[in-house]
Amino acid sequence: MDFQATIDADGRIEPRDAMPDGYRKTLIRQIAQHAHSEIIGMQPEGNWISRAPSLRRKAILMAKVQDEAGHGLYLYAAAETLGVDRADLLDLLHSGKQKYSSIFNYPTLTWADIGAIGWLVDGAAIVNQVPLCRCSYGPYARAMVRVCKEESFHQRQGFEILYTLSKGTEAQKAMAQDALNRWWWPSLMMFGPPDAASTHSEQSMAWGIKRHSNDELRQRFVDMTVPQADVLGLRVPDDGLVYEDGHYRFTEPDFTELYDVVKGNGPCNQQRLSHRVKAHQDGAWVREAAAAYAEKQAARKESAA
C-alpha cells in the first residue's frame, strides 16, 4: 500500500516504508524536540532531588526524573528509525538549532513547584500525548503508549504532593497556591499558539501526526484541571473562568510571553541549555574512553581468534 493510502486508511507507517521527505523531516523535528524536552525537563525537577522534604518524596522524585531520562532514550531511538543519529540531534539541541518545550524555561522555586509540575505540566503533556499514541508513524506511536502510562503515574504523584500541602500548615497551603499561580499560564501555553496562528498544524493533521488542534487540546486540559483544583482547595488564577455549556471558558494566555520564551528570553533558557552543554562537555572524555576501550577489546578479540 502506498503512503497516502496507508494514511487514508488510518494505518501505520513503519521505518522501511516509503514516505514523503516532508513527512520524514516533520517527524524528525517533532520527535527530536520531544526527546530534548524530556532531557531538559530533568533539570527543573532534578533541582529538588537533594532537598525533597521526606525520604519517600525523594525516592519518588528520583524515580520520576530517571523515567524522563528513559523517555528521552526511547524517543531518540524512535527518531533514529528515521535515519538520524542521536549524537547529531544532541548537537542541534546544544547549538540552539532545535528547541524543547518552553515550559522548562521556568524555575522551580519551592517544593510545591514539584507538585505543580507533576499535576499541571505532566497533565498537559498527557493531553498532548494521548492522541500521539494513534500517530501515523508506528515507532513514535508505540513510544508514546509507554510514555503516557508513566506520565499519568507522575501526574497523580504531583497531585498528591499538592493535596498533602493543601491539607497542611498555612505556610504549606500558601506554597501550593503560589506554585499554581506561577505555573497555570505557562501550562496553558504548552499547547502552542492559538489555532489561527499555528504554523505547522494543517499539514501535520493531514499526515495523521496531529489529531486535534491546539485550542481543542487546551480546552480539554482546562476542563480536566479546574475541577481538580477545586478538590485541592486552590484557586485557578483566572478571574474570567466560568462554567458554560459543559466547558470552562477561560481567559486566553498572553502569547507574547510564549513567543518571547521560545526566542530565548525566558527566566531559565540560558541556564538550562548551558547546564546541558556542560554535562555533555564534561562527559566527553568518558565517552571517548568508552569508545577507545571498546576498540581495544575488539582488537584483542580479533588477535586472539
Binding site: A63, Y76, A279, V286, R287
Partner: peptide, 20 residues
C-alpha cells in the same frame, strides 16, 4: 543523586538513577 541530569550520557543518567 547529584549525577541525575548531569551524567556523561543518557544511559548513565538512568543507571546512576538506579543506583541512587
Amino acid at each position: 543523586g547529584e549525577w541525575i541530569a548531569a551524567a556523561p550520557q543518557l544511559e548513565e543518567d538512568v543507571a546512576l538513577g538506579n543506583v541512587a
